[in-house]
Design a binder for these strands. Structure first.
Lengths: 215, 215
DNA sequence: TGCTTTCCATACCGGGCGGTATATAGTGCA
DNA sequence: TGCACTATATACCGCCCGGTATGGAAAGCA
């Protein structure tokens, strides 16, 4: 992420077609603003994050926000994109581990690092969003669930391959194992959100690996 | 739960000192109203449940609600009490299973039944509250976390006994195992909240039991 | 039949929400 | 220098939130 300097003039990060920049140039960097917005959404959830808090954290005013990112829902989706790209990079990397257990280990450790990395522990943004937001538009719920479903599918696919390669013992279905691993990861997020200590979560990782079937 | 008839006059369920009933008697049953409120909180979370939706579900008006239950926070706490008493009865029952695996099985199956019992699957109310509510008063967060902590403590204590009784193999710490089991249960709640099918959750139960260490 | 007491129904309160209208400031271009 | 264009700043909109004031309705008691 090349994170442009916060000089007075800084755009073309969003519209990569590099418009000829007619009119007054914007005085903030959309990438940085979006990063700040992501932090707020992550801390507060979609509904808990007010536009006032968002604009303050982003360092811009409401009209600027609406002009650049559309409405709150659209801003949230863009933040989700950024989240997947930056914070969930470890998921894709984990899939190339040599064995199923290696995949699980990388997912668990990556999730642990993500949950305890920034200031205070917190769950994956997707977990927060899917549990927390019971009121808001179905469109966002669907969005979040679709993203998680695709993540599930990737893991299931990887574990099916692992089964063929002999990583998993008899009687263990790859789909069930993927679902189980996701549950542990989500449970870790819940515990992180409710103030678990880092060591506790690390212990959770070790226990899960200790119980892991196959190689 | 003896669930009083919804006759016109029905009280003394809350104030068990059986006041001599001076003045106009209330025209609703506090127990039934609280049950309805619990359903709303469970579906929407604390912040997602508006007073309008609550009063409508409870079949009473706002002044009646405030007179009988205090404010929203107090109503939520009373609903939590009811939830623990009714919905989480299986937790205490599970602790008297003969082995650690039996405890785990009863917790998993009880949690599955709870999550998929009513209309649509949903997470444990405690899980929802601890993840979802990032804004509201610390007092409620503390309340929810304290209740869950006590539940954790009970399980840990039970597993320490199990260790002494030889239910758990070497190298498995009872505290870590309790934490791990909680994570799976919470993960199940997350998946239930985001629309997992009943069979998926049942599969999760079976997988966890299949991987369970000891007896 | 008053009188007290309590509950119910309606209408209302200040405040914060997501979102926007308007006027001004800062650019490139002619 | 003026024009077209776009971003910013301020103030504002309607709406819904949790919570409440007020007047009337239903009971026991005298």
């Amino acid at each position: 992420m090349e994170s442009i300097e916060d000089s007075v003039v800084a755009e073309k990060a969003v519209n990569e077609h590099a418009a000829p920049a007619r009119g007054r140039p914007r005085q903030f960097c959309p990438d940085k603003a979006l990063t700040a917005a992501l932090q707020v959404f992550w801390r507060r959830g979609y509904e808990g994050a007010s536009m006032a808090e968002l604009t303050e954290a982003m360092g811009i005013t409401k009209p600027s926000l609406y002009a650049c990112f559309g409405n709150k829902e659209s801003l949230f989706c863009k933040a989700l994109d950024l989240y997947e790209r930056d914070k969930l990079a470890y998921v894709q990397k984990a899939m190339s581990a040599p064995t199923a257990k290696g995949v699980a280990e990388q997912l668990l450790r990556g999730s642990l690092a993500l949950a305890t990395g920034e200031s205070d522990p917190r769950a994956c943004l997707g977990v927060i969003s899917s549990v927390a937001c019971t009121t808001f538009d179905e469109s966002i719920r669907d969005e979040v669930m679709a993203r998680r479903a695709s993540s599930d599918r990737v893991t299931q696919e990887r574990f099916r391959r692992a089964k063929e390669e002999g990583d998993l013992p008899e009687g263990i279905e790859p789909e069930a194992l993927a679902c189980y691993l996701m549950a542990v990861l989500q449970g870790m997020g819940v515990q992180a959100s409710s103030g678990a200590r880092r060591e506790q979560l690390a212990q959770l990782v070790e226990t899960t690996l200790a119980l892991w079937p196959g190689r």
